[in-house]
Nucleic acid binder design. Structure first.
Lengths: 334, 334
DNA sequence: TTGTAAGCGTTATCAC
DNA sequence: GTGATAACGCTTACAA
């Protein structure tokens, strides 16, 4: 696979490489018709493709951005990636996808490599535990935006769901249907923004409504056991707000194995829409987040920053949407 | 964001950049202790990060591969991406993810750009209609591997499910349970390898078993209508082999809206495992493909090729696995 | 043990 | 109108 360079073209067309470069970049201000023809022929004949690496070195721009997600298999991440890739393509950029697996060490590694590769900017779903790293990036003026999470003290714009509203909407929907025992299912908070915000709002609402809180918190692999135990003790609340899709999977598994019926035995409402919610039996009522818009806005902002426009360092909140289906029992109008 | 180069380090350490380069690359064969100290200090003080673009230009290697998928949102693609990213990380590579949307034009575009960026190799789920492009890549010796699909005439190694066996396993499972009216649901074949192979095998099996074929073929957005119509005409077969997860979504939607019960009204078996199959009501019986292994093997092969090892241009088939759950009615042992 | 200089493929500056 | 030449940041013969 020998590569043909601008020099080869120049030789073949009997001109200097400068001229070829001019031609290729449309610097046409009166170039000999004949010269143009010869160059154009040479380019065709040799099947010349410019070497972008060389151009990048010169331009100090790679036309590539990075995206570091917490977990590629999470459908939210996939949608974000999709939105960003779409946007990037439109402005002739490429996207390097990195999977940090919620591991701050991997994350740091990736960021270092991405910068070493002169990647023009990054979108990150940040892990906890790298605050210093991110303030460093910000201090260096390295174009960065966050999605879904926020890191205290790091002056980086952030794009995420309005989690409080999301929980409030779910909660009201439940109370509106006459539910008074409402549990909350979440993965361990671990300083992760959406988990915290959702849990906090849940607690606040319970307090405000004079209801006790019922928190089912655990890693995904123990969540099912947890729910089984609660059930056998007869303690499972009549309604559950599930904090995200991954947790929902576990809840659904548990309920199926326990033979519990939704919504007769327990009502379910979850934050995050998932593909199958619509045709599940029963269809799952959901507070959806506009993942695609979040990704698009984040990309938009990142490219603005890359292009040197001033962008305020603020947190952009996106409005959730309640999609009522069949998984919440109506006790109010019976 | 002013960047510090090897020159800055050299100056700060009062040595030449050659020495710094030697130091950085472990060319230690007796370097003055004092020199090392000074360089190491300078690197720290200036927070020097090597510029990989410059190195790439010299090395003619970018330590980056590309992956072009047909549709990022398809769970198979996601798993392939995940597997490849995992592998790449282990060998210090990055992965550029491109979404061709089943559009040959986009695909060509991406390939051109990836090559221009001197990306070291690509994994592709190829669209139909770019055969020439791919034979060109092969002729140029550009490291390429295919996943899931195959392009006639393009000498490129390919990694995919053993589709015939998959359909055979599904079919036998159904006949074993006493089913004699078996339909096949698929998106339009469009020259796409797995769709063709699956359909062909289905037809062959019907013939061999003296059964009529019943093909439900249509784009995703009309599939639901199609099934409704069939049902109202009383023509829906008692069992359906669904060709992939996307089609399954439509089938499940249709059945739900029609109020048909699985497996009492219709039995379902699908090719491709999907996350929710396990806890769906009823749980879906499935012929799973080892997407992760497929991705890993493809990556392995690609890196071998990149590293100049001889790899035969052959099609690697992966064995499907039948996972029996609850969506197939047993008429045989009643 | 360390330094000089050429080269990777472009583009930009400034002559001719 | 076209062409030397330098520069981008790094590696690597080859010299010293």
């Amino acid at each position: 696979m020998k590569r043909v360079t601008i020099n080869d073209v120049a030789q073949a067309a009997h001109v200097s490489k400068t001229t070829v470069s001019h031609y290729l970049n449309g610097r046409y201000t009166a170039m000999g018709e004949d010269t143009k023809k010869r160059i154009s022929r040479a380019v065709r004949d040799l099947n010349y493709q410019p070497n972008v690496v060389a151009k990048s070195l010169k331009d100090k721009k790679t036309m590539t951005i990075g995206i570091i997600v917490a977990n590629i298999l999470h459908s939210f991440s996939t949608q974000i990636i999709r939105a960003i890739e779409d946007y990037a393509r439109r402005v002739n950029y490429h996207v390097i996808v990195c999977n940090a697996d919620n591991d701050p060490h991997k994350e740091e590694d990736y960021i270092r490599m991405l910068r070493a590769k002169q990647i023009d900017g990054i979108v990150v779903i940040p892990t906890e535990g790298n605050a210093g790293l991110f303030t460093g990036l910000a201090a260096d003026g390295y174009p960065t935006v966050f999605v879904d999470r926020i890191i205290e003290g790091a002056p980086v714009p952030s794009f995420m769901l309005d989690n409080e509203t999301a929980v409030r909407v779910a909660f009201s929907h439940l109370t509106g249907k006459g539910h008074s025992a409402i549990g909350f299912v979440s993965q361990p908070l671990c300083g992760i923004t959406p988990r915290h915000e959702r849990m906090d709002e849940y607690r606040r609402l319970c307090g405000k409504n004079d209801m006790g809180t019922f928190e089912i918190v655990g890693k995904l692999d123990v969540m099912e056991d947890c729910i089984s135990r609660l059930t056998s003790e007869g303690k499972l609340p009549g309604a559950l707000i599930v904090s995200n899709d991954l947790a929902l999977f576990e809840v659904l598994k548990a309920l199926k194995h326990l033979g519990l019926i939704i919504p007769d035995d327990v009502s379910i409402i979850t934050i995050d829409d998932i593909g199958f919610a619509e045709f599940f039996n029963p269809a799952i009522t959901v507070v959806a987040q506009p993942a695609f818009s979040i990704g698009t806005e984040a990309a938009w902002s990142l490219f603005d920053i890359i292009n040197g426009e001033e962008r305020p360092v603020k947190t952009h909140r996106f409005t959730p949407e309640l999609i009522i289906r069949e998984s919440v029992k109506d006790y109010a109008n019976e």
